[in-house]
Every structure is written in C-alpha cells, then in structure tokens.
Design a binder for these strands. Structure first.
Lengths: 251, 251
DNA sequence: CGGGAGGTTGACAATCGTCAATCAGAGTGG
DNA sequence: CCACTCTGATTGACGATTGTCAACCTCCCG
C-alpha cells in the first residue's frame, strides 16, 4: 500500500470543509496535497478499534460507517453514522488513543491520512484548522441531539428522527435528492443507534408504515410518504445540523 | 459593564488549555490578553438560550452550569455539566446560532469573551487553535459517553456513572480531593441528565445508598464509600475523559 | 408562622425488553 | 435447478424496568 497525493481524491473532504468556512485557493490546494493511503474496506471491517492507538484520520470516499462504543456488559451503542466526505476519525486520531470503534456498514473506499500531516496542515494554515474545528463543533451538535434522542424521546420518535436525519444528510452529501433511499443498516444496528432492541425497532417501523409516514418496498428501502408528517413525528428540526442556508425540508 | 483584560482572571482557562497541549510563553500571554466582561450569574439564570445569536464565549470562573435542549413536547435533556475553567459556550458561539441553552446551576462568576476575539486568537496563534480544537474533541468524547449512558445503561448504572464522572472532574478542576462532594443539582436535574424521571432517580439513589455504594448526610451530599465498587456499578472507565496521565481512581 | 421548593414514598400503568418461533431472501454447492 | 444454510426480518406471549399520579414530608426563607 503506497502513499498517494492525487489531489482529485480528497475533493469530498474539501467540499465539506468549504461548506461552512470558505477557503482560499492556496488553502484548498494545501488540503488536496495531503498525503494519504487509499483503502477498500469490506462490509463489517473495523477501521479503528476502541483503545487502539490511532495513527491515521479516515476520510470516507464511498460507503457508510458507524462509530460505536461497548458497555462492560457487552451491549453496543452506535454514536454516529458516517458517509461520503466525512472525516470519520478525527476524534480518535487527534486524541491519540481511540475511545470508540469505527466499523464499515457497507463495503466502501476510505483515504487514510497520517495524523501528523493533518496536525501540521492546521498549524501552517490556521484557517483550515478553523474549518476543521468548525466541523468538529458540528459533530458535537449532532452528538447532543443524539443524547436528547435516546434520553428524552420514545421509540417512535427516535426512529422517525433518525430516518429524517439520514435522509437530509444523504441529500447534503449528494447521495440522493428524493425522499426514497436505501438504509444501509440492519434493524439490530438501528436498535443500537436508538437505544432500543431489534424487536422493538421492527414494531416501530411497522407502526410508522401502518400510519403511512413511510413505505418500504423491501425492509430497508425507506420511502418517505409525507416529509412534514415524518419530521413532526420525529421531532426533527434541522437546526442542529448547522446547514449554511435554509435547507430545512426535502419536500 | 466594561471590557477588562486583567490577565489573572483567565488563568483557569489557560490551565485547561495547557492541560493537553503545552503552550509557549508568548501563546500563554496571548490567551490571558483576551478581552472579556466579568459577570456574576444568579442561580438558574440563562447564559444563552436555544436559537439565540451567540456573540460571546462563556468561561466559567466559579459555580456550575448545564447545557440543555428541549423536545417539542417540552421535556428537557441536559447534555453537559460545566464547572470552573471550562469554556461553556464555544460550541454555540463558533456556530453563531445556539442549538441549545446554557443555564446556571448555582450562582457563579463567568467571563464573557467576544466570539471574534477567540476566532482572531486562533488564527494568529495556530497552536492555541489546536489546543481549543483538542478541548472540543474531548467534549465530543464526553458527549459520546453520555449517548451510551442514556442509550444502553439501566437507571442504576446511569446514576452511578454520573456520580463518578462528577467526582473525577471536580478533582481535576481542583474543586475537591476526596470522595465527598456536594452535588449542585436537584433530583429533577439529575433526571434530565440521565433520561429518567425524578421519582426514579430518587429510588435509584436510595438503592445505591442501601447497598453502601454511597452515603448521603443530606440529599445532595454525596459520599463515595467505595470508589471501586461505585465505578464498577457505573461501568465507569475514565478513558473517555482523555486525561493526560493515569488518573483513573480517587481511592 | 406560612409558603414553597425539593425530596420521599406507594400504588398502579405502560412502554419497552426478553424469549422464542417462524418467515423471507441471498448465496452456495451438488 | 434445487436443497441447504445463514442472516436478517417478523410476530406473539409474557415480563420487568421505568413512568405516572398523588400524597406527604422536610427544610429553608421571608
């Protein structure tokens, strides 16, 4: 596996960074000039494991991944879902020792960037550092929303909320424009993301379907019938995603 | 209210920043030279409200505060607790529009630092920016642990975990060395932090007390009888706090 | 002394978890 | 092409952790 610097590859990352903090041409070039290693990751493969030393930051180029933690008892909590353009493991790599695992949800392509290179880049280009910091702050905002989701919402609302967030983020990442998408997770994974059991997730999805808020041609093929109604059922308000302009609805 | 630059006041913030990323003398001086407004905040007073424009970053000098969010239905979720030395509202102010509220838990003293001054400081001193970024990353790690706490742990474990985290953070902030402290929150606030109801928090505290894991001379005066046992009951592992050296226990 | 906030307790209800069986679909090998 | 198998989805019966409601208590403070 060799280190590459093909500037075209890191485009998704640059797009994400410029999304909120505009960067100059020089700065953009500096980002694209980061060294990286391309890697195809298989379904279910671990990118980082809890407690490991993280030496690289992982940029998602294709596919989906999750971040998760384990309790001592062995149950799993998924704390984030990641898709194209997202720097999955900034968190672990900057803090050196991983406090959670990152695992592929589907087969995908990732670029591994050495921790030191990212660190160096932000020191040489403070505005890039600022952009990455902002990105981390948005991640934090999403974490807070998830705390509220599992802490203060009932099963139906949690699931609806997750479906809304996923739909909107897919759209922003340029992975779908409409109200129909393929959920890349099993119901067990949905359960681990919402703090429920797989059985109850199933019941809840059925209930949402029965009420016409979603339709499913296959178990994971989500079709949002009425965005407004689903957003209401999910207590979903895109404010916490900190999108630049008003991009509140899919409808 | 006038803007001040008394360098002695921002010491707690500097300590926090240098805790993980060592700063040079020049950098330290730059931090201390930040302009700020001193403010005494009363019990229950709001520092920032959800959806407001945040123009300042708030540094806790004395007292405790919480960050919270509201569901549409009106229930509250506390997503973080803050104490001396912590930059409470970096999150809101850097993202401009607040996605959650910050409220004083006790009477306290805060320093309000203009958002622009912080932003400017990090651009002029990239290493300070790096330190603040790291701080934000640690905040993120704590958020993730909280997601797991409310998502995958039962009532007893959640409460025990919160009691452990609070004890350890008090110690790190230099606010207490021993296993005895005064919890600055009501049981209703404990409930909002753990995703439970006040009644069940009460039952759970009683149960922890009955089992000798804690003792309480008054309802909020927590005395940790056996740190190891409480940490075990709370599935508490300080890894996620990313403390510099081994500082795992209080015992 | 009165009022109020917060803490405590008990009875009962309900959301959600557990257990377990069955079903559906994809991939594999004969 | 057809068992065979495995993973994931679905469903039902039952149980339990936790929520709800409501009363009462305790302490602090004006």
């Amino acid at each position: 596996m060799q280190t590459l610097t093909d500037p075209s590859t890191l485009e998704p990352m640059l797009e994400k960074l410029c999304y909120r903090v505009p960067l100059s041409a020089t700065e953009r070039d500096a980002v694209l000039a980061l060294p990286f290693t391309l890697k195809t990751s298989e379904h279910n493969q671990f990118v980082v494991r809890e407690r490991e030393l993280a030496t690289h930051t992982c940029l998602m180029l294709a596919g989906f991944s999750i971040r998760s933690k384990l309790t001592a008892f062995g149950s799993r909590q998924i704390v984030a879902i990641h898709m194209k353009g997202e720097l999955v493991d900034l968190q672990n790599s900057m803090l050196k020792v991983a406090d959670h695992s990152v695992q592929m949800l589907t087969k995908g392509e990732v670029a591994l960037i050495p921790r030191e290179a990212v660190s160096q880049l932000t020191l040489e280009h403070p505005r890039i550092g600022h952009a990455m910091w902002t990105d981390t702050l948005v991640d934090g905002s999403i974490f807070r929303e998830w705390i509220m989701n599992v802490g203060r919402r009932d099963a139906r609302t949690r699931i609806a909320h997750l479906l809304c967030e996923f739909a909107l983020r897919l759209k922003i990442a340029g992975l779908g424009e409409n109200k129909q998408y393929e959920l890349p997770m099993t119901q067990e994974q949905l359960a681990d993301a919402t703090g429920l059991t797989p059985v109850h997730v199933n019941r809840t999805l059925k209930s949402l379907e029965a009420d016409g808020l979603i339709a499913r041609s296959s178990p994971r093929s989500i079709n949002i019938g009425d965005w407004r109604k689903l957003a209401e059922a999910g207590d979903f308000d895109s404010n916490y995603l900190h999108l630049p302009e008003a991009e509140p609805a899919l409808a």
